[in-house]
Amino acid sequence: MPEKTEKAGAGTAGTETAAAEDRPRRRQARGERRIAQLLEAAARVFSTTGYTAASTNAIAREAGVSPGTLYQFFPNKEAIAIELGSRLMHEMRQSYDEVLTPIDPAATPLEEVIAGTVDRFIEFNCRHPAFFALMHGPDIPGRIAEEHDALHTTLVARVETILAPFAPDAPPAAVTRTAQMCVGIYKAGLELILAHEDDEREAYAQELKSALLCYLRPLVGTS
């Protein structure tokens, strides 16, 4: 009988240990959910008011929590913007990896390349309006600006890899300039697209595709 009692005690101790180990994991999961809730609220506030006019009080109110709860996770608005911006840029890089890959000009017409790429990036920005607000605002935190510059450099390089097979005889410097102009045209068009909705948004998206196609044809030829 004493032996059975000892085994029962060991089982109880094991259960208590497992429960103690599980508590930090539950707290961590709750913390991650709260962070996600705050970042979603911040995205809505930034996309509505812009980064400069946003405040931690407005973000907390949008999230349905007290400012004190917000400060448990983020010390200020800048920290929120940096975390949100980093997550959005990570997702945008994944889009680059999926869309901006070398193309066989014989198999894929230039029109299809432009349409597929533009549609994908417009869809991303419409789904995450805070991305444009953070990346193009007048007073964004320096760290976001640095990450966005790196993202821009990656985007231009990826566009170069797409354009090069369409213009095999063009000097590399010309392809680089063309890629830079394509990105510039896209960003200018994107601002107009995001300023409209429904049919007008689609019409402006088509205008952007047409502008890029007209610009690129002299480089790549009529094929």
Rank of each mutant, 00 (worst) to 15 (best):
E146Y: 09
E146F: 10
E147L: 12
H148M: 12
D149P: 01
A150K: 12
H152W: 00
T153F: 03
T153D: 14
T153N: 08
T154Q: 13
L155H: 09
L155A: 14
V156Q: 07
V156C: 05
A157C: 02
A157I: 00
R158A: 15
V159C: 05
V159P: 04
E160Q: 15
E160H: 09
T161I: 13
T161C: 13
I162T: 11
I162W: 07
I162L: 15
L163S: 06
A164V: 14
P165W: 04
P165T: 05
P165Q: 04
F166A: 04
A167W: 07
P171D: 12
P172T: 11
A173W: 02
A173C: 05
A174K: 09
V175S: 07
R177F: 11
R177S: 13
T178W: 02
A179M: 11
M181Y: 08
C182S: 15
C182M: 15
V183E: 11
V183R: 06
V183C: 09
G184Y: 05
I185M: 15
K187H: 10
K187I: 11
A188G: 14
A188Q: 10
A188W: 01
A188I: 10
G189M: 09
L190V: 02
L190R: 00
E191N: 05
L192D: 04
I193L: 08
I193A: 10
A195L: 11
E197S: 15
E197P: 02
E197C: 03
E197L: 07
D199S: 13
D199K: 06
E200Y: 06
E200H: 12
R201L: 10
R201Q: 15
E202R: 14
E202H: 09
A205W: 00
A205D: 05
Q206Y: 04
E207W: 03
E207S: 15
K209T: 00
S210G: 08
S210K: 01
A211H: 08
A211Q: 12
L212K: 00
L212C: 04
L213H: 13
L213G: 07
Y215R: 04
